[in-house]
């Protein structure tokens, strides 16, 4: 009897679903089409165009931009740099955010909301402002060097900014809230009873973490890593400011090509390559996630 009722309501629901769903999807679909799909197609088109010096498009099509990029030693280094930076930033962010997320998952509900707001509060300040803050903190006369020098641990200031170190520190700090949010979102299957069950079966704290807690948080870890990888490989402001012109990445290169050298086809081709990296990361992510199910 109940099954019949369920089946009936389900069928009725299916019939009603498409119309309402379509109506609700239309505004978002239009915005996406005009503001995202069409520009990306246009980007793809430009990447196959030729340009004369001064940035004027000739109207001829060729694959010259791609060939030029993929045969250039410096360009290939950029891909390597960007991948290395993004992967290491993602890993460090994961290590920093994981304990925070685990703590937030376990803390009593009374404190959870407060601490949750504290965790994401950096997002209230623009990442540009935060990056300038890091320049001050990490500079030669900055807070960190001042502290280390006055404590006598070092005699001359460390170079913490205008290099890879600065970019890494800045990006990690910018990305921690995103990582923490993704982790918490993916911690749904983590039930404290499971850890207690594991303990009663003889697992010590480390084994409990390795065999029960960590495997169950993998969906959150995968989501957070995807998000942070994509955000850091496409980040521009932080590497530009904290790299001090010494850190060369795909995103900064695209900016130089488009705005300084006015080579739009080259910039477009580089952008398409970044887009391909995104696609690969997403494909990898969905493969990994399917494993958990």
């Amino acid at each position: 009897m109940n099954q019949t009722v369920d089946a009936l309501s389900q069928r009725a629901g299916q019939r009603r679903f498409p119309l309402i769903a379509l109506v609700l999807l239309v505004p978002m679909a239009i915005i996406n089409l005009v503001a995202f799909v069409l520009p990306v197609l246009r980007l793809g088109q430009i990447s196959f165009m030729e340009s004369r010096s001064g940035g004027v498009l000739t109207g001829n099509y060729s694959t010259e931009s791609y060939i030029g990029f993929l045969t250039d030693r410096f360009s290939l280094d950029l891909i390597g740099n960007s991948l290395f930076l993004s992967l290491s930033v993602t890993f460090i962010t994961l290590c920093c955010a994981y304990p925070i997320a685990l703590f937030l998952h376990r803390v009593s509900p009374r404190w959870r909301n407060v601490l949750f707001v504290v965790t994401v509060s950096p997002l209230l300040v623009s990442s540009v402002v935060r990056t300038y803050g890091w320049m001050v903190i990490l500079g030669e006369q900055g807070f960190v060097n001042g502290l280390l020098m006055s404590s006598g641990l070092i005699s001359s200031p460390l170079r913490l900014v205008n290099n890879w170190m600065g970019v890494t520190i800045g990006l990690v700090e910018v990305l921690i809230p995103y990582m923490a949010l993704s982790l918490i979102a993916g911690f749904g299957r983590l039930d404290v009873n499971l850890e207690e069950a594991a303990a009663s079966l003889g697992a010590n704290a480390w084994t409990r973490f390795r065999r029960v807690v960590f495997p169950l948080t993998l969906p959150g870890v995968a989501l957070g890593c995807l998000l942070c990888f994509v955000l850091s490989i496409s980040s521009f402001i932080t590497p530009k400011l904290l790299g001090g012109g010494r850190v060369f990445l795909l995103a900064t290169e695209i900016y130089d090509q488009a705005v300084i050298q006015l080579e739009w086809p080259k910039a477009a081709a580089t952008s398409v390559i970044v887009l391909v990296i995104f696609g690969l990361a997403l494909a990898f992510y969905s493969r990994v996630v399917r494993r958990f199910e």
Binding site: R189, D191, E196, A197, A199, S200, N204, L216
Partner: peptide, 19 residues
């Protein structure tokens, strides 16, 4: 500590490891 007590525990919500 619990992991050294040699005690079998059954929970209301079963607490089976889902993975």
């Amino acid at each position: 500590p619990p992991h050294k007590r040699d005690i079998g525990l059954v929970f209301q919500n079963y607490a089976l490891f889902p993975h």
